[in-house]
Design a protein around this nucleic acid. Sequence first.
DNA 1: CGGCGTGTTGATCGGTTTCAAGGAAGGTGG
DNA 2: CCACCTTCCTTGAAACCGATCAACACGCCG
Lengths: 223, 223
Amino acid sequence: MSDQTVQRYVHRRRAPTGKVILDGDEQPTWIGIILGGVVKLMKTSEDGRRQIVALQFPGQFVGRPQGKPSPFLAEAATDVELCCFPMSTFDTLMRESRALEQVVMNQTLEELDLAREWMFVLGRKTAQEKVASLLLLMAHHLSAGGDHACAAGAPPDKKENALVFELPLSRAEMADYLGLTIETVSRQMSNMKTNGIIAIKGARMVTVPDIAALQAWGEQAQA
Amino acid sequence: MSDQTVQRYVHRRRAPTGKVILDGDEQPTWIGIILGGVVKLMKTSEDGRRQIVALQFPGQFVGRPQGKPSPFLAEAATDVELCCFPMSTFDTLMRESRALEQVVMNQTLEELDLAREWMFVLGRKTAQEKVASLLLLMAHHLSAGGDHACAAGAPPDKKENALVFELPLSRAEMADYLGLTIETVSRQMSNMKTNGIIAIKGARMVTVPDIAALQAWGEQAQA
DNA sequence: CGGCGTGTTGATCGGTTTCAAGGAAGGTGG
DNA sequence: CCACCTTCCTTGAAACCGATCAACACGCCG
C-alpha cells in the first residue's frame, strides 16, 4: 500500500473534554493514535462505582487490532486530537509491516506492565502514597516528552529542578483512578501543600519544587 | 523449522509449590506454556507489602516474546508443569507462523483486559465482594476446562449444579491477590460459610451449592 | 507428645468514607 | 458590569470497614 493510498484513508479527529471516544460494547471500525491530550479508559458498575483503568498519552493507540472490542469506555480527559485509521486499513498495514506489528505488540506489553504496576498501587498503597504516585506519573508524562503543558511559566528560576504542570484530571477523576473518594484526594493534596511537597494554583496547576521529596513522600512517610 | 527440530529443543519442567519460576529482574532465556497447575505473578515492595497481579492457568504462556523482562516475579502457586522453548526457538517460530503470533497477541490482550478488570475489584469492591469475586474466578477456571481438581467427589448428587474445587491459594495468597489481610479473607470465608453460600472442608476444599447465590453475594448484599 | 505452620476468631484501633456545609471559579443573563 | 447559578473543590465531624494486635485451634510431622 503506497503512502498516498494510506493518506487517503487516514483522518483527524478532535474530541472535546468529556467526549466518549470509544464505547466498550460496540465493535469499533477504526483505530487511532493520540496526537495530543489525555484519554482515560474506565469501567463503571451498575450501581455507579467507577474505576479508571488506564490513562493514555500522545503516541499511544486507542482501540485494538482486529477490532476486538474491549469492555472499557474510552473518554477524553482533556481535549484530544486523534489520527484515525479505518480498521481494515490498519489490519492491512499490520500484515504488511512486521515493524508496525512489533510496535503494537510492544505497546500492548507495556500497557500490561503498567496495569499490573497500578494494581499494586490500588491494592497495597495508602491514600497518601496513592496521590503521590499519581502526581509522579503526571510529572513524568507531562514534563519529559509530552506535548502537554510543561513549564507553563518562565524558564526555571526558583529551584533548579522545579517542575510545573497542569493536571489533566479533575479531583473526581483522580479519585476514580486511585480507588479513593474525592474528599480523600483533596485532603491529601492539601496535606502535601501544607508540607511544602507541592504548591497548587487553582486546583489544577501543580508545582513540584523537589521531585525527590515527592518521591519520598510517596513511600511510607507520615506527616 | 521441522517438527523434529522443534521437539529437540523443547523440554518439560516441573516446579513444586512455592518455587520461583521466573525472576522479573533477569533476562529470561526461555518461554513456557503451563501444562498443569497455577502460577502467580507478583510484585513485592521493599517494606514487604505484596500484591499478586495475575494468576495463570494451563494453556497460558509464562515469560514473554523477545525476552523482554517484566518487573514481576513468577512463582508456582501449586505444583506446576511447564513446556519450555528456548527464547530463540520461540522467536523463530513466531516469525515463521502468523498463527502463533496471533495466539500470542490475543492472549496478551486478554491478560490486559483481565488485569484491568481486576483493577476494578481492587479499587472499588468491598472485602465481601472481593472474596466472592475470587471464588467465582476459581470456580470458572477449575471447573470448565481446567485439568485441575473439579468434582473431586462423586457425580453431582446433592444440588443439580453444585461445584466442588480445591483452592490453589493459601489464605495469604488470596489476601495478596485481593489487597486485603489474611484475617479479613478468613472472616469473609467464615461469613459465607455461615450464610450457606459455600461449604468448606479443611481450609482449601470449597463447595459452592449455588453459583448464582455466590454471584449475588458478590454484588453488594450484606449479611 | 510437642512444635511449627496455617487458619480462625475476638477486641480494639485508625484510616478512609460518608455526611454536611461552605468557598472559589466560570458562565449567563439582566 | 454585576448578581446569580452551577460546578468543582475544600474542610469539618462522625461513622464504619478493614487493619492490627492477640490468643487460640487444627493438622502435620518429627
